[in-house]
Amino acid sequence: MKSPNVSNLFSGVILTLVLFLGLSAYVIINPGEAGVLSILGKSQDGVLLEGLHFKPPLISQVDVYDLTVQKFEVPAQSATKDLQDLTGRFAINFRLDPIRVVEIRRTQGSLANIVTKIIAPQTQESFKVAAARRTAEESITQRELLKNDFDSALQSRLEKYGIIVLDTSVVDLNFSTEFARAVEDKQIAEQQAQRAVYVAQEAEQEAQAEVNRAKGKAESQRLLAETLRAQGGELVLQKEAIEAWRSGGAQMPQVLVMGGGNNTSVPFLFNLKDLAGKGSS
């Protein structure tokens, strides 16, 4: 006959085993996650989405994958169309396709494997495709087009593996030191050339203005000559002489002699002091 202590111990072990088997027969998948059930090392069809799921105890396990947005920075290096070295670093936002999680588990394994074995090399290849379509200078001036080509190539490549690319951004984009210096020198030369063109245009405009002023002056003199030759020209001269006295601030002369017998002739002026000096001599 068994003692009470042995019986109680045996019952406790059985209860513990049943409790352990009961708890290990269920798995909880949280929101934003997906699980893949494996029995005796073989992945089973059908994704375990959020909720409570049964699994055979002791002989099964569930691999849980995060379906929320993941972000990784991946470096890449390539050569441009004109064979200039170009290095970049891209931030990639992606998530796993929940429908294809079982396929991902069978072919890629963990999320770490997905990043190192799929995303990193495919980023490198996509960057090569985008960079090879344009020269180094075009890669600078058409940076947005370079990114669009990169996005298109990366999305089509990762889609085959059940990876959905949501967004990418260029964290860094660099050329060789020699090329960067050449670009800077070219920009300086272009600025100097533009300045020279501006100075030449300014000089041309000033020269044209001088020509226009000369033409206007010549035209004015021509019209004045025609006026003087015409009847009444003497009145014009007389008027200008009076205006000259006024504008110059000089006093009116002490002697005013009109030429000839015509009152409209140009006035002839002389100074009485000059006459006095000549009389004494």
Rank of each mutant, 00 (worst) to 15 (best):
K71I: 15
V129F: 09
S265K: 12
T168D: 02
A189L: 05
R181H: 12
T80L: 01
E73A: 11
L256S: 07
S139K: 06
G88P: 04
V102S: 04
D151K: 05
F150A: 09
I29Q: 02
S24Q: 15
V101R: 01
A250M: 12
R105P: 00
R105W: 07
L111A: 06
P253Q: 03
S43K: 07
S60C: 09
K273N: 11
I104C: 05
Y161K: 06
N93W: 14
D149V: 06
I140K: 09
V197P: 00
R181E: 13
G35R: 01
L40G: 05
D66R: 10
A276F: 13
R100Y: 05
Q192P: 02
L52W: 09
Q254N: 12
A91Q: 05
N174T: 15
A193G: 03
G109L: 03
Q191H: 06
R246M: 14
T16S: 10
K217Q: 10
L228P: 06
T177C: 03
V171P: 08
A276C: 10
L15T: 14
N8S: 15
E210P: 01
E178S: 11
Y26T: 15
T107A: 07
E243D: 11
R195T: 11
A189V: 00
K42T: 08
T116D: 08
A200T: 08
R195P: 00
N5M: 12
I59D: 04
Q208L: 15
P31C: 03
L235C: 06
V62D: 02
S7E: 14
V171T: 10
I119C: 00
V170R: 02
S3Q: 10
A136R: 01
I14N: 05
L224A: 11
A209Q: 11
K147T: 14
T168N: 04
T141N: 07
M258K: 10
A230G: 13
E144T: 15
A250L: 15
P4D: 08
A79H: 14
V165F: 03
E184L: 13
L9M: 13
